[in-house]
Design a protein around this nucleic acid. Structure first.
Lengths: 341, 341
DNA sequence: CTGAAAGCGCTAACAC
DNA sequence: GTGTTAGCGCTTTCAG
């Protein structure tokens, strides 16, 4: 069985040295046209393709970046990954994708295998606020960039929106519609994103002199059962909630589903606002008021900055600061309305 | 600046040869415990990790597989990719993901870079029926497996459901509910999947002596405008359609959205059935009757079969037949109902 | 049980 | 312009 053809075979066939073949492949400027042609012909006839593994070994470059997301089946990550892959490709990089299932252990092993495979850089879409592995990686000058979340220390490049502000805007939107009892539903605050949104919610309440009521806040895993219970409570308390702010569109939609099953009308009985502006929230069946993360732009910047870091690795320290903070945007749709008394 | 530490450094530090370090790393059985320990210590102290690129160069194995999908932001691919990545990882493989945007050109270049990077095998989620590139690849004995679609020639391993049967079941379901004018909406039939579904639809009609009416069939790109027009036509013709079979859940949902905007009630005014059973179709806001592709199982089988092909490459030809056909399943939800006359 | 040496397929000085 | 020669960091005979 014939094995793969390599540049040596090409060289022999073309009657030149292996180095010349290499030069042709890499489009070196000064090669006589006739020899270049000989080589190109040999390449075609033999069906030669460069072995990137071998090339990577001495160029110390794989032209591959690692992408770590919490859950690729979550629309937010699916949409951003698509963009990241597409931009990376346009810049000459392939993407190795890992799904961490939001488990710190998986992050660790994924990171290890990506580093082992010598990816040129890594983009991370979900890290817990106090994660040390990413911090260490960044400290070792390895090109990493976070998007969506960031580290509490702030010591790692990240592309995020101003989550604090976004949550404030969301809450203020409800307040401007005369809502006063506003519930908040969030996953645990391990991610900076969620932590900051929580703070923004509190701040907005404080700014309007609305007392913060722990009973109106759910922090935990988002199971149907748990949310049903929570909704029951906030809707039956003496001073019942008239609006809910959900820390993500996914959560908001879950809440809408539960409201539907309980015959609670949105927005008539309760206003709901989400966060992320995933594609689905625009659907007429959902029509969710939300805060846009500008997630497409976010992915775009993340890749560009990462590639920049990779390709200018030797540049000065300060240039390595590739963080950006995008502005959140309120997207008003049909799930929120003025509270009529 | 200190460069990366390699196995030579470890060898020196441990006072052994590089070969021994390699043996330890690869868990060779016969090594004296004391030397093994020395090596392990050196590895830890130096923070050594294997350079997989160098390893791949002489083992001819990258432990990486390529995954090509049409559109990762499409739930079907997002959900299957998640499963594929997870199973691949459990079998020791990383995944390089490419998004083809359903463009044959992108498939071509993606294929080329994946091959160049020496992935051990490739999983393809969307190929056109008559694609030659995949055929060529398969003929060259490179491990490839298709899922979701297959080649018209049938000469490449594929894991699919019986799409013909699925479409027949879907159509028969509507017929069993006394619908007679049943529209069909599909993307162009370049994919085997869509081609076969179309055939199944026709067959079901024929089996019930319902004439096939081209005017009730839309084949083309799914734009809001186009579908709106189509709906207008089928709902206003003298003998108007009372049911629609959509070639995918995504299309079905699009139709539902348009119906909503036109105040056409589902399922009262029109029954709608989809195909795929993506997560969203289960949502109470959608509640779509559909055909399950068993896409999770499909992904699982695809990875297992591919890995099998990779790891038993030298086995007999016949064993390379790793195709499977899964059974479609009708999932009845709220978007279809008996036609009341 | 362990070491020496060759080599995977390519690129990168350094000659000429 | 082009060939020669070393490696990149690892694994793998082949000795001993």
């Amino acid at each position: 069985m014939k094995e793969r053809v390599n540049s040596k075979d090409v060289a022999k066939k073309a009657g030149v040295s292996q180095a010349t073949v290499s030069r042709v492949i890499n489009k070196y400027p000064h090669i006589r046209d006739t020899t270049k042609e000989k080589v190109l012909n040999a390449i075609n006839e033999l069906g030669f393709t460069v072995d990137q593994v071998a090339r990577s070994l001495n160029t110390r470059k794989t032209s591959t970046i690692g992408l770590l997301v919490g859950d690729i089946s979550n629309s937010f990550f699916a949409e951003t990954s698509k963009e990241i892959i597409s931009i990376a490709r346009s810049l000459g990089y392939d993407v190795m994708l890992s799904n961490t299932d939001h488990q710190s252990d998986n992050l660790k092993t994924s990171l290890a295998t990506l580093i082992g495979k010598r990816v040129d850089g890594i983009i991370v879409g979900s890290v817990e606020r106090f994660d040390e592995q990413i911090q260490t990686l960044h400290d070792s000058k390895f090109p990493v960039i976070l998007y969506n979340t960031r580290l509490a220390s702030g010591n790692c490049n990240a592309v995020v929106i101003d989550n604090f502000k976004g949550a404030r805007i969301a809450t203020e939107h409800l307040i401007s519609l005369h809502h006063k009892k506003i519930a908040y539903v969030t996953l645990p605050l391990n991610y900076s994103t969620l932590y900051e949104r929580m703070e923004g919610y509190k701040q907005a309440l404080a700014d309007s002199d609305i007392p913060y009521d722990p009973a109106s806040v759910y922090i935990g895993e988002i199971s149907t059962q748990a949310i049903e219970n929570f909704i029951d409570i906030i809707m039956s308390s003496p001073e019942k909630c008239t609006a809910v702010f959900a820390a993500s569109d996914q959560i908001a939609i879950k809440i809408m589903e539960i409201c539907k099953s309980k015959k609670i009308k949105v927005p008539e009985d309760i206003s709901i606002i989400g966060f992320d502006n995933i594609d689905l929230s625009r659907s007429p069946f959902i029509d969710l008021t939300t805060i846009s993360q500008q997630h497409i732009k976010m992915s775009e910047i993340a890749v560009h900055n990462l590639v920049n870091m990779i390709e200018n690795k030797d540049m000065e320290e300060e240039n390595q600061n590739a963080s950006s903070v995008l502005e959140p945007q309120l997207i008003i749709r049909g799930s929120t309305k003025v509270l009529d008394k």
